[in-house]
Design a protein around this nucleic acid. Structure first.
Lengths: 340, 340
DNA sequence: ACTGGCACTCTATCCGCGGGAGTGCCAACA
DNA sequence: TGTTGGCACTCCCGCGGATAGAGTGCCAGT
């Protein structure tokens, strides 16, 4: 049996009221607060159906109804008109971002901005190395046998690693290494570099082979293996809004999950679709986050996507508003990156 | 009236029991769990005195006693023998730190280690720029009018900033700038650099003056103004141990405080004394942390101190154990830095 | 100076009891 | 067939009172 329009309207009303009041909502209160044009009894019938279909449930017999995860899902998919940002919010974004100086700055400001606007926990991933290109590689002698390898990407990220050389290396040789490495790798996507690095070693003059091999191994580590993604987090204090009622009693599991970068990356790192994604409660694979929802989006200059960002909050959240904000911020950050 | 030895012993017993059980401790339970050699009645008299002096208090008439902040303070100052780390803990530290690759790695591992060992929130400050020296400055052309300034310090920190030049700059000029800047600044303590940077501009040939001034302003920002300290945080989930009983009801203020880097730096950034410092409850100037204690210590290669680290937990914490751990980890990190 | 005894206080817990909100069902109606 | 008003029912929540228990303060005795 499919749900007719009024039943959907009832679901919407339930979700909206529950999100606002945080209390189970009953049939009488519903008809009072919304112009449904029908009596409580009718609404009750609709509710019975909605409950049977799994979209709402009652905490105990004879209490009001509460949306289930499936209910929120339906609400998000079919009942949400993305509400445009208020001018105040637009201005907040603008104001927050004036005078950014570098990538770190952008990321930190963005994550705070998101947390503040949505009043939830915000996560921003640094532009993924895998999706960046090498802009420049620099070799800085630290001692006679040590080099500092500094890599700068087109997205503004700077990574550095220490290289222990097999033996002392005169400055001219460092210079030569630097030149060859840049010649070969500059401009290349990081994902494409491994074979190039190998070539670099192969094409090297035998007497330099040792040094180059050593450098190459660290290069590979930096470029690929250790291309651990970085991210920034803000707004954890927002978890305590609404008491401990959300998150079924303890923040513990949520805080634990937030400490695991791997988990966070999974949450916001789904970069395929350019659209905003919402994961509600049980839809999260992470057990610790079964009582949380995540709204995330990819961002990047133009249409390409170089990283993800998003917010995490209770399933009982203002989805339309949150989605709009996340989307707007993602777009803004993308534009900002495009300017560099 | 001064407290005799037995009264102090009673205080110690109260603190230890309360820390363990999290419940107000009564006279009878005390004599049962500790060999005090006197009767409950005697202990009661001692307790009355201790209460009068402000070291303990009862939540309500006819409940057990609970240490006050002053009680903890006395306990820490006069009743604590630092207990040596267990071999297991020593081994944990060693194992945690094998194979560190760079400074970021050291800091991240350290903060996780601390959180794990103390089961509390851990904070580690990156080596303070103000206390570091310039090892090398690198200028990388990004476009014709943009340079990336990369600074490497002797403590392993790498900072970068974008420099917008007034006009296009040929590679040779970049080279020259790089040479001059390094000549003047390499090896200097960051704190000493501002006048040197000024000199750099003054001594510059007039036709280069514009470029150099531009670079200098960014340099100053990087070296001084924006030498915001960085830090790492871990173990927030530990705040939820012991329910919400600690922290008088909500984690909110604590989580808020933990989001403010400035606050955290104040907490662990008191670098004067080489010894471990303990701040208990009200001793924290930050209102949000009135129900928390902070154990912190400076660290650095040898006797010098380049940064701070510490943990934050409820006033009801295991001070002897925590102090020992913080101290041990600080020393270990110092040794690690000394090796570079 | 310490101890045992005793009366007192206060809290936490359980119980029972409405009040109230909300439901489900049914019969009536358009 | 879909909607409505009515009604009995269920269950949570909050309240007051009684009780048990833990712990204290005080006092008299050693």
């Amino acid at each position: 049996m499919s749900l007719d329009d009024r039943k959907l309207e009832v679901l919407r009303a339930i979700v909206e009221d529950y999100v606002e009041t945080q209390e189970p909502v009953g049939s009488k209160a519903l008809v009072e607060r919304h112009q449904l044009g029908v009596s409580p009894a009718t609404v009750r019938n609709d509710m019975a159906v909605l409950e049977e279909e799994g979209y709402i449930r009652q905490p105990h017999t004879s209490a009001g109804r509460v949306p289930t995860d499936a209910g929120y899902r339906l609400f998000v998919d079919r009942l949400t008109r993305i509400k445009p940002l208020s001018p105040a919010e637009r201005r907040a974004i603008e104001r927050f971002m004036v005078g950014v100086v570098d990538l770190d700055d952008v990321v930190h400001r963005t994550v705070r901005l998101l947390a503040q606007l949505t009043r939830q926990v915000a996560v921003v991933q640094y532009p993924s190395l895998a999706r960046s290109s090498v802009r420049h590689l620099e070799l800085v002698p630290i001692s006679t046998t040590r080099l500092m390898l500094v890599m700068i990407t087109d997205t503004g990220r700077v990574e550095q690693r220490l290289v222990e050389m097999p033996g002392p290396l005169p400055p001219d040789d460092v210079w030569e290494l630097r030149r060859r490495v840049n010649e070969k790798l500059a401009g290349e996507k990081l994902a494409d570099t491994p074979p190039l690095v190998q070539k670099l070693v192969d094409e090297c003059a035998p007497e330099r082979r040792g040094d180059m091999a050593c450098l190459a191994s660290v290069l590979l580590e930096t470029l690929v293996e250790r291309s651990e993604e970085r991210l920034a987090l803000a707004g954890t204090a927002n978890l305590t809004r609404g008491g401990v009622l959300d998150f079924q009693g303890t923040l513990r599991p949520v805080l634990e999950a937030l400490e695991e970068e791997v988990i966070l990356l999974k949450l916001i790192g789904d970069l395929e679709p350019s659209t905003t994604r919402v994961r509600i409660g049980d839809e999260n694979e992470i057990d610790n986050l079964r009582s949380a929802s995540v709204v995330s989006s990819g961002y990047g200059p133009g249409a390409t996507i170089v990283g993800g960002l998003g917010v995490l909050g209770p399933t009982r959240m203002d989805y339309p508003g949150t989605i709009a904000t996340v989307r707007a911020v993602a777009r803004y950050v993308g534009d900002l990156l495009a300017q560099n």
